[in-house]
Each structure stands twice: as structure tokens, then as C-alpha cells.
Design a protein around this nucleic acid. Structure first.
Lengths: 359, 359
DNA sequence: TTTTAGCACTCGCAAGGCAAGAGTGCTAAT
DNA sequence: ATTAGCACTCTTGCCTTGCGAGTGCTAAAA
């Protein structure tokens, strides 16, 4: 009553330096031990030069302000969602990943530099191991891709395997069934013609081309168009997950039922796509932190998601991030996600920028 | 004592028809309810025309023979690993998947027939949904693949993206860094030359070719060789998982710690590769059932794995299967795995048999 | 005005005891 | 060969109780 108007403190985020310290320590201790933090533990474990009574008073303020809560009367304090949010936005957001970790990650990536197909699973694996939670990485996806090459492979009878290569290295395969059998030579000829016609063109440019007189070529062309626009509409390509077991062993996932629902969200790709699209709409940049579902995702009530976009905005982008219990080591995961996003951005721009420069 | 020599019964698998029935019912009931099955429950729930005492006598025999056990004195019976094994090998192994399920699966696959890239994830998804446990599918992998096409894409400065297409439709990408910048026209020319030289040849045949005089072509050729042999050595390509959440909600996974270790086995791809290789060495055919790790895999003590190979033996093969608690509905999963393996075999042979016929 | 010692109070949690119930094995009768 | 009956065992749920952790408040000290 006589100290600080709690409403004022809430609205203006006006915490004293000491209150911020106590909040930070409680968040830190709770993320490590998963046990509610009491005043005595705080004093003795972090060598605070204060009495437990003083801590209790400060904790009472933080509780009134909505940053802490008590599971029950005779337990210590636990951060609320607002508590985590304050911690993330006002205390550790700017922290950089420490040099040793940066070095380790760079090194691991350098070793796999050549092997493009390993980039995404490797990124997911590193993210999971570094942050000790589950990770997800979506393959980079071009907003507008250009035709590079077409391959038509006769397999059996009327069946043909079509392999489409885009600038930027995206590859898609499709199995066609033609109206009648066509010899391989004829297919190769058609592919050569279409390659020449479509080379380096976008979906729109190909669509605007005059119709082919040859029936086979015409049919294939329409399939190419369909495939390309399908690729462009997809929010993201493949999704790589790793480290789900890290999350499973967390205590909050042992009993709680809705924690398992959260994992379901990550298995059901369509739901995940929706989550990504809504959490990071176009134009949003930087690291996004969703704490406890933010009221929008009921399944994520006990979980947090840290997301970032990587790549070249407007050209080729993907997303990566981590997923774990709300009680997550944000001071570790946020810098890690940011660093990995920058790193992948570098790799992607190296791979495709040459392409773009040709124009 | 005065009934049947239990050792004899064990060694010769000599169970009476009634004992087999009781074993089957206990397995069935236990897989459904996850509760130990008592004599009373068996009689009333399955309308047996016997008294509970008779059932108890038979259950005592089955227990002495090692097919059943009691978690504790006042509980019902639970199948042992030997019990499951007997059930699988002597009771339901030949069962076919019922027609409605076959129809559903075929239908789902027919719809995605065109989209080669969707086959594996679709197979994993169907397997998981049909059998209500976790599923895994490895991409088909050619023992000896033949070169089909090469694409060299200049990206930036000395960096080049190499896209390699094999007969059978396997595609691999690799990022190279050349000693010095090379214009795209030069790269395309080299690719065309190498395409002509290597077309339809195996790794061995390409290795036996006379060395190229051109340095660039020579370097690329050695990279192609490395990539192709790497692809051949790999036990299997990508691995698709699905339905892990099905397994997570099973009661034995709630508390047990080593159940979570089992899931770790499936996340760590290298461990999984090892498991697959050892569980299904070359030449082994048909559906393999690993019950409780079979003494070889400590992590799988509480779990079972049902595996089958698909494809064309000696040419292109992959594996698929399911993973779940030992208390699994084998009568459902085994026919499902068998059916799916046959179905994928059909698809794969359609895709590649034409290729092979060209020779 | 801020900090701290002291104290009463609350409440979760583990331990112990008890009754109920489930399921068995054995024996004797059918 | 089967079954009814019964004594026995052991889990499970429930209740009680005591302990301990942690708090908030008040009054004194800095």
C-alpha cells in the first residue's frame, strides 16, 4: 500500500533494479530446478546480502504486479507468463550467444558446408542440442522461383517421372501417366524443347508464353506450371524436427495431458504450418517468442516457442526455432535461435545470390 | 504335476486348442485394456462356457510354461515376451488385413499416385493411423544406381551447386567450391559433356572410363563418383517417422523411463540405421517382429518393432514398419505392415522396372 | 524510511493404519 | 475332467496425523 502503487508499476513496467534482479534469479532458478523458489533459497543460493524478509516483501510486490505467483500458500514463487515476458523483453533480449558456442556451431556447419542436403537436418540437430529442447527448421522457400531444368524419364508403359529443377536448387519430382506410351527419345526431345523455352523464366512468364502446338509439350507445360505455382503457394517446404526427446523428459510433460497435445501440434504438419504462418506473418522480423500460447493456441498453454525467419526477405526465406516447456532457458535459446538464423541466412544468400546477380 | 509335463509343453509348443484360445484372449484383452486379465473377466467378457476355476487351471499351466506371468499375487495375468511370440508366430501370423482397410489404404495411395515425393510421408502417415502406433518408412535405395543427368548451377563466385539425378529418380545436391570462378556457360558445357559420357552407367563403369583431359571435367567427375558411391553405401536414404504421439499416450510410457529412451533411439538416426541393419540383414524377407528388444536392444525392453522390407530385392529396396509398446495389437499391425510393404513394392517396381527393361 | 527478526498460520506431502476388493490356488465334490 | 467353495494374499484407496516449508504480518532496529 504505502510502497508503490502496484497498478502504476504494472502499466509502466517500473520495477526497481532489485526487483528485476529478484525476478531474474527466480526465473533462472526455476528453469533449472523446476521447483518453486522460496525466499530462503534465493538468499543462500545466490549469496544475496539481504534478509529473507526483504526478499519476501519484494516478492509480494512482484506477485501483486502479476509477474510471480504461488502454486499454493506454503510454496515458493513461480514466474507467470507476464514474468517470463518481462524477463525476455526487458532483461535478456539483447544478450548475445557466448563465443565458445558460436565457435562450436560455426565449426559444425563448416564441416558440412558442401552437403546442401544436410544443412537443414544439421541445423535442427544443433539447435536441439544447444538449447536442450525440441527444434524445428523449415527448408528455405523461394517466393518467386525460376525454371532451371526439366527431365522426363520414361519408366513403364505410359508412366513418366518428371524431375523439375528450379534456380536456387529446389527439386521436385512427379509421376505422370500419359494418355498413350511415348518412347524415351520423344520425351527427351520434348524436355529439351521445353527447357529452352522456359529457361530462367518465372511462373508468370511461362504462363504468358504462346501455347505449344505439340500436344505432349502442351500437357507437360501445364503440369510444370501447376507444379511451380504449387511450390510457390506452399508456406514452406519440408520441415525438420529434432530433439523431441529433450522435451519429453521435462517434468511438466510427465503427467500433464495438454503437454502431449502440444507435441501432436508438431507432428501434424498442417497445424504446424498454420502456427508458423500466424506466428510470423510476412514482414515480421527478428526473434519472436510465444509464451504459453499467448492466448491464441490452447494446446501451447504450457509451452513456449521461439521463432525466427532466415534467408533473404522477399526472395528466399525459411523459419527455424525451438519448442519447449514455458519454463525454458530463454537466456540460452533466444541467442541461439538468433545466431542460427543469421548463420543460415548467410549460407542461403551465398547459394542463391549469384543467381540473382545474373539479371 | 499330474496334468502335462510343463517342460514338454514348452519345448514342443504343445498347447491344447483351449490353451491357445485362452492365451489369444488374454493377449487381446490386455492389448485393449492395459490391465492384467483375471479369470472372471475372461469368462464373462468373452462368454466362455467354462467356469473361472477351469480357466484358472489353464492359466496356471500357461504361466508354468512361461507364456503368462502375474505382476503380483492378487492380480490377473499378463503375457510374457514368450507369450507374445507364441501369439504372433502360431496364432495370427497368417492373418490378412481385412478388405475394408485394404481398400482404404489403396484409395489413399491412388490419390497421391502422381506425387512421388509424397509417397514416403504418406506411407508413414497411413501406417501410423492404421495401426495406432508410431511408424517409420525409409526411402527406397538402389543397390546399384545408374547416372541419369547432371546439372551445374553457378551461384556466387567460385561456388557451384551440383544436382545429380539417378535412374530411378534419386536426386542429390551438393555445393562445391572451385579453385577459381568459372562462368555458367563453361559449367553448362562441362555438364553436357559429362552427361553424354556417363549416361546410364553405373559407378564401376564410370570409374573405369579414361581420365578426362579437361581439369574441370576431371574434378567434377571425381565428385560425381564420390557422391554416387556414397549414395550406394548408405544403408538407406531419408527416414520418415509418424505417429510418435500415438505411442506417447500409451500408459506404459507415462512413467517408465526406459520407454522414453526407446523414442530417443528413433530420433537418433544413426542408432536407427544400426537397428534396421541388424534387425533385417540382407536376404531376410517377410515381416520381422522384434518383441521386447529380443535381448539385443536394452532400450527396447518394453517395446516391439514390426519391420518389413519392400521394393525389388537386389535392386531397389527400403524398409517400413511400426514401433510401439510390447502390448501392441499385433493382429492388426503385422497384416498392415505386410500389406503396405507389398503396396510400396508395387509402386517402386512400376517406377523403375521400365528403366531396367531398357537394357 | 528501509530493513530485519520473530512468530503465528496455512497447506502440501509423506507415513502409517485400516477396510475393501480382486484374484488366486487348493481341496473336495460332481 | 470340471467346478463350487473357501481361505489366503496383496494391491488400492482412503483417512488421519505430524512434519516442514514457506508465507505474511507486526514490531523493533538501523
Amino acid at each position: 500500500m504505502e510502497r508503490i502503487d502496484p497498478t502504476l508499476a504494472l502499466v509502466m513496467s517500473m520495477l526497481t533494479e532489485r526487483q528485476r534482479l529478484i525476478l531474474a534469479l527466480i526465473v533462472r532458478d526455476y528453469t533449472e530446478t523446476a521447483q518453486p523458489v522460496g525466499s530462503a533459497r534465493l538468499v543462500e543460493h545466490y549469496k544475496l546480502d539481504l534478509s529473507t524478509a526483504t526478499i519476501r516483501n519484494e516478492m509480494a510486490v512482484l506477485t501483486e504486479s502479476g509477474y510471480l505467483r504461488q502454486p499454493h500458500t506454503s510454496a515458493g514463487r513461480v514466474p507467470t507468463e507476464e514474468g517470463y515476458r518481462y524477463f525476455v523483453t526487458h532483461i535478456i533480449y539483447q544478450t548475445d550467444l557466448p563465443e565458445p558456442a558460436r565457435h562450436t556451431i560455426s565449426h559444425q556447419f563448416h564441416q558440412a558446408r558442401q552437403d546442401v542436403e544436410q544443412w537443414m537436418p544439421l541445423a535442427a540437430s544443433i539447435l536441439a542440442h544447444q538449447s536442450k529442447v525440441a527444434s524445428l527448421v523449415t527448408a528455405p522457400h523461394a517466393d518467386r522461383s525460376r525454371f532451371k531444368h526439366l527431365e522426363l524419364i520414361s519408366t513403364q508403359g505410359r508412366q513418366v517421372l518428371m524431375v523439375l529443377v528450379m534456380t536456387g536448387g529446389e527439386v521436385s519430382q512427379q509421376l505422370l501417366t500419359l494418355a498413350e506410351p511415348v518412347p524415351q527419345e520423344r520425351l527427351s526431345a520434348a524436355a529439351t524443347v521445353l527447357c529452352a523455352v522456359c529457361a530462367n523464366r518465372t511462373t508468370e512468364e511461362i504462363a504468358a508464353l504462346p501455347a505449344r502446338s505439340d500436344t505432349l509439350e502442351k500437357d507437360i507445360l501445364s503440369l510444370i506450371l501447376a507444379d511451380m505455382s504449387r511450390g510457390e503457394q506452399r508456406v514452406s517446404g519440408d520441415i525438420y524436427l529434432d530433439g523431441l526427446t529433450n522435451v519429453l523428459s521435462e517434468p511438466e510433460f510427465l503427467e500433464s495431458n495438454d503437454a502431449r497435445q502440444a507435441i501432436r501440434l508438431f507432428e501434424e504438419r498442417s497445424l504446424l504450418q498454420d502456427l508458423l504462418a500466424r506466428a510470423m506473418p510476412n514482414g515480421v522480423d527478428g526473434v519472436q517468442v510465444l509464451i504459453g500460447g499467448e492466448g491464441k493456441w490452447e494446446e501451447l498453454r504450457q509451452c513456449s516457442v521461439v521463432l525466427a525467419r532466415y534467408g533473404i526477405p522477399g526472395q528466399v526465406t525459411g523459419m527455424l526455432g525451438v519448442f519447449g516447456p514455458m519454463r525454458m532457458a530463454y537466456s540460452r535459446t533466444i541467442p541461439t535461435v538468433r545466431f542460427m538464423a543469421d548463420l543460415l541466412s548467410g549460407l542461403v544468400s551465398e547459394t542463391i545470390s549469384g543467381e540473382e546477380n545474373e539479371f
